[in-house]
Design a protein around this nucleic acid. Structure first.
Length: 556
RNA sequence: CGGGGCGUAGCGCAGCCUGGUCAGCGCGCCCGGUUCGGGACCGGGAGGUCCCGGGUUCAAAUCCCGGCGCCCCGACCA
């Protein structure tokens, strides 16, 4: 590609509202362009990267027996009503009506459509297993798009679905995907971890996420440096250090705390660290209200809570008032008749602070034994410093970008949508499903977060937009350009009438890892070759260039 | 959904409080010249529904009302 004729535009300054590094760089380098909130155009540079990523994904999906299909984005409400997700997806789903007033969704995922195809094509155990996949546009009306391409409302997703006759079969399809995913992310040049994850809205039995550790990420992981354990904080067991911590309050007494409600307010009013405050939260369950206690610096994990209580839901301020006769903010555990569930970490606190059970009062100097009859459970998100469930060493907390997620769905969709097959024994059984996703755009963003700087990018060779970038400083690069093209290389030739500095700065932004500089050595028939990953540069006679390229180019 | 910020040329911004003298600057773009291996310099030039609608006023980018859009933080945690 001749750069002078290309739609490659770089900007000296990033858009003012871009906060994350990848967002700034992707816009500055002219890879993508925002159309509206959470909706982006991929310009040639960005789209080339996406196509490279998608090629790798296709190769690995095909290698595990995946068959590529292409499903529509428009999808009738009736399909979603069958699975119950017309309701449960809520505002995250884009909805529209056709001219006759019929309801449609812009599909946020495709389990329902897969089920619809499967129930009309899979009849017998002989038809199983199957793996179907697609690379297709998804729509999700996120409450808040974020960080440029990090969280968007329209995006390409590789989604695949496995159909099996047995649970062992599902385990196999799942394992195949896990291995394929590792190969895909490795080939894309990413450093990643895979972690146990929560199944959330998808439902199902088991799931793992593939994560790139990055400050820009929206997910929180706990990782163990000594044994390699890693998990999303949503599912990691929260194991407290068994060491007693003493607050400054040695004596139990009621303290006047006028209008002091939040953890921050109470903490600064009493001059005590948030960990010595114990929050009392009222949850409504199918078996009545329950008081849940966690430390002020911890957060309740409602998924964990749901494992020990029936359908827990935080009580409203009104419900709290009518139950306990006290304003939210001053609820405390002492003298309250509700069943109590407390996080295990509270056992190791002495002299903590709780709500006073009446407006404008807190009680300080409380000890675990004062709480009376309490169920000690794990009801919170894991945090840095909790102990590794595998080796017992303290965990570190990091942010991460989710690039892939695999789920064992089971029979949730096949049962609700009637996807049955006839087994060997003549019995009709629900097909056992798995569902698996990768965000190619997230792979691109993660690469920038990993390898970009404020003014430059360095793409992994396998996903770089071109094999090489010819920096033509003498206006005679055409010979080199033709040479490389004829040898089958995909090269970008900077043939613009610009000064050297401009060309190098732009090349830094574009981030093609192999550079061929046609400059001062050209008069001797030589070019300068740069391998930016190795940090090497050296001169090569033009006759030897193709041979040299063979060593440098790596298409993953 | 709660809170905060912003909207003036392709990009980054000033002007707004204190209405008129206000359509400005830098980058980019076009033309000419000098320069030429790390975002050069000089001269000339093009480019705007000042987000939209309404109002106040002799007069509105500027004041008032309403809307739209974008970004950030938070989001059942007391």
């Amino acid at each position: 590609m001749r750069q002078s004729k290309s739609l490659i535009r770089t900007y000296r300054e990033p858009p003012a509202d871009a906060e994350t590094k990848s967002h700034r760089l992707l816009v500055r380098g002219g890879y993508v362009r925002q159309l509206t909130s959470g909706v982006y155009t991929f310009l040639p540079l960005g789209w080339r990267i996406m196509k490279k990523i998608m090629r790798i994904i296709r190769e690995e999906m095909d290698a595990i027996g995946g068959q590529e299909i292409f499903m529509p984005s428009l999808s009738p409400s009736s399909l979603w009503e069958e699975s119950g997700r017309w309701e449960s997806f809520g505002d995250d789903m884009f909805r529209l009506k056709d001219r006759k007033g019929r309801d449609y969704a812009l599909a946020p995922t495709h389990e329902e459509v897969i089920a619809e195809i499967a129930r009309n094509t899979v009849y017998s155990y002989k038809d199983l297993p199957q793996i179907w996949y697609q690379l297709q546009t998804k729509f999700r009306d996120e409450p808040r798009p974020r960080g440029g391409l990090l969280r968007v409302r329209e995006f390409i997703m590789k989604d695949s679905y496995s159909l099996d006759a047995t649970w062992e079969g599902l385990d196999e399809s799942y394992a195949k995907h896990r291995e394929a995913y590792k190969r895909i992310f490795t080939r894309c040049g990413l450093k990643f971890v895979h972690v146990k994850a929560s199944t959330g809205l998808m439902g199902g039995k088991e799931s793992e996420e593939f994560m790139v550790i990055s400050d820009a990420g929206e997910d929180r992981l706990v990782i163990c440096d000594s044994c390699g354990y890693a998990a999303n904080v949503e599912v990691a067991p929260a194991i407290p250090v068994e060491e007693v911590e003493e607050s400054p309050f040695k004596e139990r007494k009621k303290v006047h705390t006028p209008n002091v409600r939040t953890i921050e307010e109470v903490s600064s009013f009493l001059g005590v660290e948030p960990k010595f405050l114990v929050k009392s939260l009222v949850y409504m369950t199918d078996e009545g209200p329950v008081l849940v206690l966690v430390r002020g610096d911890h957060e309740v994990n409602e998924e964990k809570l749901a494992r020990i209580l029936k359908n827990p839901r935080l009580a409203t301020a009104e419900e709290v008032m009518s139950l306990l006769g006290v304003e939210v903010g001053f609820v405390g555990p002492l003298g309250v008749g509700l069943p109590k569930v407390a996080d295990r970490s509270i056992r190791y606190l002495r002299g903590f602070v709780v709500g006073g059970g009446e407006k404008d009062y807190h009680i300080v100097g409380v000890n675990p034994e004062d709480l009376g009859d309490v169920r000690w459970e794990d009801v919170r998100y894991a945090v840095e410093g909790d102990l590794c469930p595998v080796c017992g060493k303290p965990l570190k907390q990091v942010n991460a970008i989710e690039i892939g997620h695999i789920f064992k769905l089971g029979t949730r969709y096949s049962e609700s949508m009637g996807v049955y097959f006839t087994d060997r024994d003549g019995q009709r059984k629900p097909v056992i499903m798995g569902s698996y996703g990768i965000g190619p755009g997230r792979i691109m963003v993660s690469a920038v977060e990993l390898y970009g700087t404020e003014n430059s990018m360095l793409w992994p060779k396998s996903i770089a937009p071109f094999d090489a970038h010819i920096i033509d400083l003498v206006g005679e690069g055409e010979e080199v350009y033709n040479l490389l093209r004829e040898a089958g290389y995909d090269v970008l030739w900077d043939d613009r009438e610009e000064r050297a500095g401009v060309k190098f700065k732009d090349a830094d932004l574009i981030g093609i890892p192999i550079r061929i500089v046609v400059g001062r050595a050209w008069k001797d028939g030589k070019v300068e070759v740069q391998d930016l990953w190795k940090g090497e540069r050296y001169e090569v006679p033009k006759e030897n260039l193709i041979e040299e390229m063979g060593k440098l180019v790596d298409r993953g």
